[in-house]
């Protein structure tokens, strides 16, 4: 489609960093909430889920980007889903091979990665239009952002809910665990807390910028 403007992005540090902060899939775009709430009761589960999702995200984005001129518009969603499902199946087997206990803890949420909107969103909005290198860097950034978000939830929930971090006890023996934190409501509470913090930081930054503009305008 020659008449469309060239949308290909140049590779900059921002290509990676955007996923971590500005367009963080969890804290800013609020995508993929299902695993965020469900499997973050411990840090190790959160980490495993984050890495699994990142792997699927990166490999499927790469393949989509590679095949992007081959995939006709009419069948693109079907193609993306088949590609994503392939990598999810691979991850599923890989986790079973690594640890069955981890597999039991993550449960159905591994298979559900296929329905994670972060991944389909990346394939549709980014990988299908961009070159392989930028796609790789961008999806790595998004995956890192997603993993970071899961870890920040999992960390808080495990510390308060169990008194441990990565299974290592960090409190004296008679620490009182906050049981609510490892139950589903704890996921909502902690997510709400993080969203509050992120929005507050964002608003403060925007206000500062607005003030800056006001000051310079005034100086003129």
């Amino acid at each position: 489609m020659a008449e469309l403007p060239n949308t290909e992005e140049r590779l900059t540090p921002d290509t990676f960093l955007r996923g971590l902060w500005e367009e963080n899939p969890v804290f800013v775009m609020l995508l993929g909430m299902c695993p965020v709430l469900a499997v973050t009761s411990t840090t190790i589960n959160a980490l495993a889920m984050g890495l699994a999702t990142t792997f699927v995200l990166v490999s499927s984005s790469l393949l989509v980007s590679l095949l992007r001129s081959w995939i006709p518009k009419q069948v693109r969603i079907a193609s993306y889903i088949v590609i994503i499902a392939t990598f999810v199946t691979i991850v599923d087997y890989a986790i079973q091979a690594i640890s069955l206990e981890l597999y039991a803890a993550l449960g159905a949420f591994i298979q559900l990665i296929v329905a994670n909107c972060v991944i389909l969103g990346r394939a549709e909005a980014y990988a299908s239009k961009q070159r392989i290198m930028t796609t790789l860097v961008n999806s790595l950034g998004m995956g890192a952002g997603f993993t970071l978000a899961l870890l920040s939830l999992g960390g808080v929930r495990e510390i308060l809910g169990n008194g441990t971090i990565l299974g290592i006890s960090i409190f004296p023996a008679d620490f009182q665990p906050w049981i609510v934190m490892i139950l589903p409501p704890g996921g909502f509470f902690v997510l709400g807390g993080w969203l509050l913090l992120f929005n507050w930081l964002r608003l403060r930054k925007e206000r500062k910028e607005a003030e800056q503009i006001g000051v310079t305008a005034h100086a003129r």
Partner: peptide
Amino acid sequence: RTLGGIAMISGLLV
């Protein structure tokens, strides 16, 4: 061609 090709790659990998 596309769907068939993708299905084949997918099947092989899995």
